[in-house]
Design a protein around this nucleic acid. Sequence first.
DNA 1: CTCGCCGCTTGATGTGGATCAAACTGTGGA
DNA 2: TCCACAGTTTGATCCACATCAAGCGGCGAG
Lengths: 248, 248
Amino acid sequence: MLSTSSVQPLSLERLRTACSTCGLRELCLPVGLSQPEMDRLDDLISLRRTTKKGQSIYRAGDRFDAIYAVRSGFFKTNVLLEDGRDQVTGFYMGGELIGMDGIGTELHTCDAIALEDSEVCVIPFSRLEDLSREVQALQHHFHKVMSREIVRDHGVMMLLGSMRAEERLAAFLVNLSQRFTARGYSPSEFYLRMTREEIGSYLGLKLETVSRVFSRFQDEGLVSVQQKHIRIIDIPRLKQVMSHQQPC
Amino acid sequence: MLSTSSVQPLSLERLRTACSTCGLRELCLPVGLSQPEMDRLDDLISLRRTTKKGQSIYRAGDRFDAIYAVRSGFFKTNVLLEDGRDQVTGFYMGGELIGMDGIGTELHTCDAIALEDSEVCVIPFSRLEDLSREVQALQHHFHKVMSREIVRDHGVMMLLGSMRAEERLAAFLVNLSQRFTARGYSPSEFYLRMTREEIGSYLGLKLETVSRVFSRFQDEGLVSVQQKHIRIIDIPRLKQVMSHQQPC
DNA sequence: CTCGCCGCTTGATGTGGATCAAACTGTGGA
DNA sequence: TCCACAGTTTGATCCACATCAAGCGGCGAG
């Protein structure tokens, strides 16, 4: 049992891992399902997978056959260019779905890598489609999840295409804060699971720039930064920075 | 009949606009459907909509209730920030689907604007979901289309986050060339429907930079540019530029 | 507890693309 | 037909962020 990325069928653990009893069910795939519908979804999700920090749940080029719901932990997704350049395309936390990039071609187009020891629910995709044909609420919610991923990507495109470094980092922190809040954590105090380099890659900046902007934010009393420990002191002002409305 | 964005039921035109006889069916929603299945899809798509250059099929904030397949013409989608900044998030041509951004919130999150006089098929979304529950091939293909939109967005994020101006424009031209080719047009000669400013907005560049890079490409014998008329002279070299492999 | 290293911070300098400015051109409308 | 103007090109200058460089500090392995 020392294997670092193990796949294990549910058995006695079943009750503990069922969607119905999962603390993340209001954020995850079962949103809007009745109890019997949720039971049917449970039948489908019979595998969990634990992943150690640094390991992947899939790599670009891997055959696609499942999507993954983050049960615990933190992930990033990474696209690669032939010439070696790469870019972080997203960070994922509890209740969020990873892997929808693979549906279009039956092959994954990015790497999904754990930023800390993590656990995901494996959702076999063809069985999800089967069930979606029978359970309208599931079908509709899945479409919403994919649509939101598209909208999120548009937000990142906006950020990369027309925001300056301070605005990008402010937007990033505000977004993280909101997602932590939705999960019952503090809106103002959290640990970053990713390095400055990963943040930079996601935001289209170099790690030095990320570091400098953090320092500037700290000097201005917006946040307190100690390595990966972040405390947001002034969320409203951070939102102003994000929206270009610096008070001169 | 002078209204600029008219909605008209199909009647005698029916045969002409049915998916089954549409030249774009191999690129559009009906991919992989049998004849009877395609007939059922036809039943659902009972509206076409013509849109004059400059007009929108929907705006950010509009209620979402349909997606749109481009029948003819050319569109852009635009996201807006409160502070007035905006960004082009995509260009769409025949056979491509617009509007999936609205599924997540029931509201559209961007504007969809015609870059020339155009026509779209209106696909009522709830009826599309109904039919998807009965026709597996349709369900699966729709999922593929959404997934590809996500993958395309990741490509743009890569481009915006880690490519230089010349690489971006080269990637843009290669992409357009491929899409025109798939539609039976010349891979090397086409008219741009968008302005330098719109290209720049999409690529995270200013219009002056786009213009300068076009000129540089022309000087180097990669393309011939006359306003919106583009002739790609050396596709392989353009692909090299895109991949950072400048021959010193 | 200590060592080594990875990740972070900070400074100095360089540069790609933005900005400002001016002139040119093709097009659509009166 | 001609005018007005939106869109484009090109040049000069500027600046935000990249790059290069050096030192720091916290954490995990032993």
